[in-house]
Design a protein around this nucleic acid. Structure first.
Length: 106
DNA sequence: TATTTGGCGGTTG
DNA sequence: TCAACCGCCAAAT
């Protein structure tokens, strides 16, 4: 039971700078996880939400998660806008606010 | 753009 | 230890 992946995901979340967002796909790819949805599951099982900014993780299309457990998409969007994330309607402007991971995966 | 299908791995019993 | 379940997705249609 290598929770290594889970731990790594949580670690990455804390690495996301304010005003930027990342996609589940990037995380899964960076950590070599064959299942992006699994990343979402981890956020759902997030042991410490306040420690990990799961609201900075979005769909690959820029859409937010309808199942966001901290107030819904609405609150999530608002929070991101406050941080300076560019929005195109209900979607995040990935071209402007997408954060690229740097360094080596653990 | 909206909806449907597929599929991976940690968690729990 | 083993098997079954469940999830904040991505890609295809």
């Amino acid at each position: 039971m290598q929770k290594d992946k889970k731990k790594a995901v949580l670690e990455l979340l804390s690495k996301i700078p304010k005003g930027k967002v990342v996609t589940y796909k990037q995380i899964s790819d960076f950590l070599d996880i064959n299942s992006p949805q699994f990343v979402g599951k981890i956020l759902g099982n997030n042991p410490d939400p306040s420690k990990y900014p799961c609201h900075r993780v979005v769909y690959r299309d820029g859409k937010l998660s309808p199942k966001y457990s901290f107030g819904g998409e609405k609150a999530q969007k608002k929070k991101l806008e406050e941080e300076g994330v560019r929005f195109s309607g209900d979607r995040v402007d990935l071209k402007r606010s997408l954060y690229l991971f740097v360094g080596t995966p653990r």
